[in-house]
Design a protein around this nucleic acid. Structure first.
Lengths: 186, 186
DNA sequence: GGAATGAGTGAGTGTACAGTCACTCACATG
DNA sequence: CATGTGAGTGACTGTACACTCACTCATTCC
């Protein structure tokens, strides 16, 4: 009978689901702080099968990080497309807004922070550089902004990471207000 | 007279030495990635005694982080004092230079990155906020710069962290040059 | 029906590590 | 010399966790 033309591998589907879970759970507790078993539980799968789908924990983290940058790039791209103001600064601004929307749940952002902390593991450092490269080049080419403006865009993105990791939003003090002023973030 | 071969030191002196070691070793391998035994070895002391000097690993990390912000604050303060240009921007600039000198060895900087990754542990998050508060308020009061300029100062400091953790200096590519351009760092 | 393939797991194994505890030894004081 | 105090440690305990392996079960194909 007209069975599916291509035999779909359920393992591939599982891999995607596990990566989704990995992004969420790694983001919460970090690379070393997250047992594979917690990711397995979140994906409603046995720990043994996670270990069968990925050669080791490091590879799973890298896969999650890659996917994270994939999504961030897509969001920035969408932001650039839908910007009403077509000037370089206008497009940069729209991209910033799209990024802020994307990280309304903090998983993508937190995963980057954890990756920075684990960047001495060669594969993780390499994945991080790949991701930053893809973001940087895309921001530059899609906005047409100057090098200085792109650098500033990234710098304020990093400030945003600091604000979120330390929960500065909820600190009712002058110095905290100073740091968070005008920064779009969750 | 001739000093005895083996000299017992006071617990207070030991604590300082252990904190020095902790800054260096934690900076290299992170909070969860660093066994207490490695810090003990670096301090030429038994692991058991480290556990006697600090109630637990978390407290040791917090002590190291506090000391790290202490040193950073002192460096910024020195930078502000010795600035030839007494305008707010000139002082900010001098502080940036002093900070860049301080983190020539990357320990202080890396420790902050690891602290961000471990900030969900309440005591570590609190220590991080304390440190950032002290830096921010001191930069503001010593430089007399506007809120916006202080915010920018911190944002580019965070960019500097990104550059160091990912080793962007050693990446010979256009996008990497764009991000590192004009940033003073080790 | 029955063989082959591949999804998925339970029950381990080995190891690393935080924290403890009973102890030894250095030194100051009377 | 005797004794008290505090520096410093070796040996241990309990636990958590990455990864393995022999296995079961469902589906597909002949």
């Amino acid at each position: 009978m007209p069975a599916p033309a291509v035999r779909l591998s359920t393992a591939e589907a599982r891999r995607s689901l596990v990566i989704d879970s990995a992004i969420e759970v790694f983001a919460r507790t970090g690379y070393l702080g997250t047992p594979i078993a917690n990711i397995a539980e979140h994906a409603r799968i046995s720990p043994a099968y996670v270990s069968k789908l990925f050669p080791n924990k490091e590879a799973l983290f890298v896969a999650a990080l890659d996917e994270c940058f994939e999504r961030a790039g897509a969001a920035l791209s969408r932001g650039a497309e839908t910007s009403a103001d077509r000037s370089p600064d206008g497009i940069l601004n729209a991209m910033g807004g799209a990024y802020a929307d994307l990280i309304a749940d903090r998983s993508l952002l937190m995963l980057q922070v954890h990756a920075q902390s684990a960047a001495t593991i060669p594969e993780i450092g390499a994945a991080l550089r790949r991701g930053i490269e893809s973001i940087t080049t895309m921001v530059r080419s899609r906005s047409g902004a100057t090098d200085e403006a792109v650098q500033r865009f990234v710098a304020y993105g990093q400030l945003c990471h600091l604000i979120v990791t330390t929960g500065l939003d909820d600190v009712p003090a002058e110095w905290a207000r100073l740091l968070t002023a005008g920064i779009r973030h969750p």
